[in-house]
């Protein structure tokens, strides 16, 4: 048995005579518990205030992911903070700060602790990965009756074309509860197509068409931003968007000059 193991053994024997919550481990456990609870509460509370009200399937995925990941990360972060706080309270060298304290116990490591740490963090990674992949895979599934919209970025605005109707609009209007596929491209430099509350984005690359899809599931207005620096007036590259009922969508198409029959067909309304 090495010297440090003997010291540890001795310390363990001495410590074990005290009740659990009087020992450092017990006190750290209490701090950890409190911090974890705070972290988990933040995980449930903060996303409502930090994220916009999500209006689509992908947006809801983002919201759920943020909550789940925060809740999973909270105990780990809380453990590090708990040890840090406790070390400052209990193990701090008091007295003359100009005088160096005595040396601490010569612990060079702790095999079991390291193994536990590795196993726990690996398990967490597996959980994150499974969650992330399942959400990602689900987003890749293509839906029938998808509404196609051609998005074009240019310095410095977005335009949206509704194929088959001849409509080109500067605002993005989407029907409720209908999968929509954005075919995104750019005519000059790289832009970032970011319909914010839809919780999805993809770059608009010149000469390439990139595709994302989502299903709007709440009525309301949202904004469309450019998320990739694209020159002088990048900050003003902005469009407003709205999610409307299919009837309103058809009316909007008609207001853009689409014949009523075609508008209704595009909006999938049975006459």
């Amino acid at each position: 048995m090495s010297f440090e193991e003997q010291v540890d053994e001795l310390e363990r024997t001495v410590m074990s005579e005290k009740p659990f919550f009087s020992r450092p481990g017990g006190k750290i456990f209490i701090i950890w518990l409190i911090l974890s609870v705070i972290g988990v509460l933040i995980g449930f509370y903060a996303p409502h205030h930090l994220l916009p009200a999500m209006m689509s399937s992908t947006g809801t995925d983002v919201f759920k992911t943020v909550v789940v990941f925060t809740v999973l990360a909270a105990p780990v972060a809380a453990f590090v903070y708990a040890v840090g706080i406790y070390s400052l309270i209990a193990w701090r060298h008091k007295g003359d700060q100009d005088e160096p304290p005595e040396d601490g116990p010569p612990m060079h490591g702790n095999g079991p602790m390291t193994v536990v740490w590795l196993v726990v963090s690996s398990l967490l990674v597996v959980v994150l990965l499974v969650w992330g992949l399942s959400v990602y895979m689900a987003q890749q599934v293509s839906h029938p009756n998808t509404l196609q919209i051609d998005v074009t970025g240019r310095q410095w605005l977005w335009t949206f074309k509704y194929p088959g109707t001849g409509v080109e609009s500067r605002t993005l209007v989407l029907p409720l509860d209908r999968a929509v596929e954005f075919n995104v491209t750019s005519v000059d430099v790289t832009h970032g197509f970011w319909p914010v509350a839809l919780g999805n984005q993809v770059d608009a690359n010149p000469g390439e068409v990139t595709v994302i899809q989502t299903t709007p599931d709440k009525l309301g207005k949202f904004s469309v931003r450019c998320s990739q620096l694209c020159g002088l007036y990048h900050a003003f590259m902005y469009s407003s968007g709205s999610v409307v009922t299919p009837t309103q969508f058809s009316q909007w198409l008609q207001a853009q000059g689409v014949p009523p029959a075609l508008a209704d067909r595009t909006a999938r309304i049975a006459r």
Partner: peptide, 11 residues
Amino acid sequence: IGTLWKGRIWT
């Protein structure tokens, strides 16, 4: 945190 553990924290 292992290094801080039971150390003599000299702040």
